[in-house]
Design a protein around this nucleic acid. Structure first.
Length: 263
DNA sequence: ATGGTCGGTTGCCGA
């Protein structure tokens, strides 16, 4: 089974490249973040035409929003809203092979990495803590579970183009990395991307729009992640970051991450 | 030290 995650930055505007991705990569499941559309306005017909008959969504008007598009039936669909906000950051479902997949969008956290002056940063830190607590309280790490999505934190030195220059930039600050790593270790999540390309290999999934030539500058960050419980991570046999998608027509600033899971 | 570009609840806010 092939599973992808992609921060799409408006699913309606991006339908042409979702179609291109589906045709070229042939994923069975696509988890999207930043769909930016209320469930009532979701382009169900378009995704069904691409073969994704089963859709689980948690969307709100205009911003955030996550979904799971699937060619296979989705069972036990659910969501949780952390930090007391119903703002479309989480959806999950169980696939026919018994694995549960979660599509997650962690708050970006604003520009200033100080929660006393920037409440968005505090919200981000609290969200990561509460998310970790929820999995600890509600899920069994011995079961086959996968969390994918835009976690908006690049935890490792080589997850960013310059570790030194980004230490005070939100997404790579020590406090965020500490929360991220604590969440990962508390449940025993396996980083399914680094398993295939350990440090010091550079690994990015996002390049800012604010660059004349993203490819030449290559000032990327790994903000998107694939986590799996150990029993499921053992079955992940391949991983690909579709870097070319950053250069497609009307691109998102994020690119898809794809993993193959053995039956 | 600054500004650069996207998308949608547009002439601003979030990323």
């Amino acid at each position: 089974m092939r599973i992808a995650t992609w921060n799409i930055n408006s699913v309606r505007l991006r339908m042409p490249i979702v179609a291109q991705f589906a045709a070229e990569v042939k994923p069975d499941v696509i988890c999207l973040q930043e769909t930016k559309v209320h469930d009532d306005q979701f382009p169900f017909d378009d995704v069904k035409a691409l073969g994704f008959e089963h859709v689980a969504i948690n969307g709100i008007k205009g911003y955030n929003g996550v979904c799971i598009l699937s060619k296979l039936p989705l069972d036990n669909v659910g969501r949780h809203e952390w930090t007391g906000k119903a703002d479309g950051r989480h959806i999950y479902a169980t696939l026919p092979n018994g694995m549960e997949v979660h599509s997650l969008y962690v708050p970006a956290g604003g520009d200033e990495p100080d929660r006393t002056v920037n409440e968005k940063f505090g919200h981000k830190l609290d969200f990561v803590d509460e998310m970790a607590g929820w999995f600890a309280a509600n899920r069994d790490p011995k079961q086959p579970i996968m969390v994918v999505g835009d976690l908006n934190i690049a935890p490792l030195e080589h997850d960013v183009w310059s570790h030194k220059q980004l230490l005070k930039i939100v997404s790579h600050t020590p406090i965020e990395v500490e929360k991220f790593t604590a969440a990962q270790n508390a449940f025993g999540w396996v980083d399914c991307m680094r398993k295939f390309a350990p440090e010091p290999e550079k690994m990015y999934t996002w390049w800012s729009y604010r660059s004349r030539d993203w490819r030449a500058a290559n000032k990327g960050r790994r903000l998107d992640h694939v986590w799996a419980t150990p029993v499921l991570a053992e079955k992940v046999g391949a991983m690909d970051i579709v870097v070319d998608a950053r250069g497609w027509e009307k691109p998102s600033d994020h690119v898809p991450v794809v993993v193959d899971v053995a039956d």
